[in-house]
Design a protein around this nucleic acid. Structure first.
Length: 517
RNA sequence: GGGCCGCUAGCUCAGGUGGUAGAGCAACGCCCUUUUAAGGCGUGGGUCGAAGGUUCGAGCCCUUCGCGGCUCACCA
């Protein structure tokens, strides 16, 4: 019925005008009305001579007299964001990708017919404005228009100017609207882009080569995670979306690309939370002839570089949770980051008595007494890992390196020379979140093969996240990989940190949601 | 998956113990030639997330379901 009416309306613009007050229908009516007048509501081109920011920046400080003396004729375009009609004159604000500016429209200046058309425009419409730049008597920089052109008609009303769009579900589902009406959203994604640019710059300066490796793996490897499965029809082959690029990047180190990095998506078929999106962006970089100690130094430099480059500061406000309350801290990247070994952190940060983690039995007891849920198959390392998650992680607000993890948690890391139960690995925590994970890479093919075999045994015992055997990766290591250190940084979480965002959904343009009802 | 909270006009929100659904903004009409959350007068606009149930009567109570948020669990 509605469609039929719209169809009729398209050809007979005025038939239904008096019969409906429906907001959406009204705009469609206007569309037809403009077409009937010979005005194309979606014109093919319009040439601007300036972006709005280019008008504001150099002229904000000029007086009205100075501006009029300069006689600044300009042509700009943008979306109508607000409007104040006063009979035979109107003000509106238009916004383009660079900024927002006020436009003054006077009937005597643009002509009666144009003024009539303008008064039929809606908030949300794109218009082109030709006019002279000056100031109003209240001192606001304003384009005094001589000609107004409809560029694109908007058929859906925007959220109101004052409260904006608050409904989080709508904000995520209709990010385009969120971006139009909530200025802070755009800022976050501009920051995100600049952070990624800065990371590239940091690495390129140090002679890292950016590469792209497969997203579709026949053997998903490089992380303990459940993959998404898909199928290639022509090859009749199951494929998995990658959970990490790690094993391919290390193959490239074998091949002589001694400094490589990739910034790209990985996919993990796991729960969704304020810190987890099924697809997320990681930076992984590998450095031959370096170890994890070198990477800690480099990581501090990297954070300082990004902070200074993008935000011009090294201190960032950070909201975090403590005892069920939200608290504020200032993250300081200028001082050297705290360091604890994994074991130290359990004792000193987590306040776990040293004897409670002396053996697997005691650790299990301690965990169960403190209601830390364990799995029967958990080995010593995994039990300690769960104790860490429960007692330590939420205390780590300021940048903190946790080093020397249990072997069982790290099937791709090189063992410490002085303690084969520990590996040369660190994770960086900031604002209660794991931001980076790095280690001296295991390059002993025989050791790596054994570790894979242990993982396969765990997988066969029902651990769906355990690593798979990757014979080609072993073969690559058998050709010889130089001593190498590698690091992964979660870009989404990094952006959360720098923009003080509380949810990963606020730094991903289109976060994963259930399908619309 | 568990717990808690939410879903009412295009948007933001009100709607004590069940009794004819409201406001602001937006929209529409009229007035208004420098306003800026412009102003004045007037008007229209609702599947109250969905489906059942209880009741003379449900936005409100009950059940199931959907979507979202937070949180716990799972999970790096």
């Amino acid at each position: 019925m509605l469609r039929w009416a719209a169809f009729l309306n398209y050809f007979s613009p005025f038939i239904f005008m008096e019969e409906t007050t429906d907001l959406l229908q009204l705009r469609r009516d206007k569309l037809s009305e403009f077409r009937a007048k010979g005005i194309n509501p979606y014109i093919n081109r319009f040439h601007v001579t300036a972006f709005i920011a280019d008008l504001i920046q150099p002229h904000l400080e000029n007086t009205k007299e100075e501006l009029e003396e300069k006689n600044l004729e300009t042509v700009v375009a943008g979306r109508i964001m607000s409007r104040r009609k006063h009979g035979k004159t109107s003000f509106c604000n238009i916004k383009d990708g660079t900024g927002q500016i006020q436009v003054y429209i006077k009937k005597d200046d643009i002509g009666e017919a144009s003024y009539e058309n303008f008064s039929r425009f809606d908030i949300g419409d794109f218009i082109g404005v030709q006019g002279r730049l000056s100031k109003t008597k209240t001192g606001e920089l304003t384009i005094f228009s001589k000609q107004i052109t409809l560029l694109s008609k908007s058929l859906l009303p925007l959220p109101e100017k004052w409260h904006g769009l608050k409904d989080v579900e709508l904000r995520y589902r209709q990010r385009y609207v969120d971006l139009i009406v909530n200025p802070g959203v755009r800022e976050v994604f501009v920051s995100r882009s600049k952070i990624i640019q800065a990371l590239r710059e940091f690495l390129n300066e140090r002679h890292y080569l950016e590469v792209e490796t497969p997203m579709m793996h026949s053997i998903p490897g490089g992380a303990t995670a459940r993959p998404f499965k898909t199928h290639h029809n022509a090859l009749d082959m199951d494929l998995y979306l990658r959970v990490a690029p790690e094993l391919y990047l290390k193959r490239l180190v074998v091949g002589g690309l001694e400094r490589v990095y990739e910034i790209n998506r990985s996919f993990r078929n796991e729960g969704i939370s304020t810190e987890h999106n099924p697809e997320f962006t990681m930076l992984e970089f590998y450095t031959a002839y370096a170890d994890y100690q070198d990477l800690m130094v480099l990581t501090e430099e990297l954070f300082r570089f990004v902070g200074n480059k993008v935000f011009g500061t090294l201190s960032f406000p950070c909201s975090y949770q403590e005892d069920g309350e939200t608290k504020e801290a200032t993250i300081d990247f200028s001082r050297s980051f705290d360091r604890y070994t994994f074991q130290q952190s359990l004792i000193e940060v987590g306040q776990i008595p040293p004897e409670a983690i002396a053996t697997q039995e005691k650790a299990v007891d301690y965990a169960l007494k403190n209601k830390v849920p364990l799995d029967k198959k958990d080995n010593f390392g995994k039990v300690l890992g769960k104790l860490f998650d429960h007692f330590v992680e939420h205390h780590l607000v300021q940048p903190t390196f946790i080093t020397d993890y249990p072997l069982e948690l790290s099937p791709l890391s090189k063992k410490r020379e002085d303690d084969p139960n520990l590996v040369e690995r660190f994770e960086l925590f900031v604002g209660q979140k794991e931001i980076a994970n790095a280690y001296t890479e295991l390059n002993d093919p025989i050791d790596q093969k054994e570790r894979f075999q242990q993982q396969v045994a765990q997988k066969e015992a029902g651990d769906e996240e355990a690593h798979w055997m990757d014979h080609d990766f072993i073969r690559a290591l058998e050709y010889g990989m130089p001593p190498t250190a590698g690091e992964g940084i979660g870009i989404d979480r990094l952006v959360m940190l720098f923009t003080n965002s509380q949810s990963i959904r606020d730094v991903i343009l289109f976060p994963q949601l259930k399908k619309e009802a």
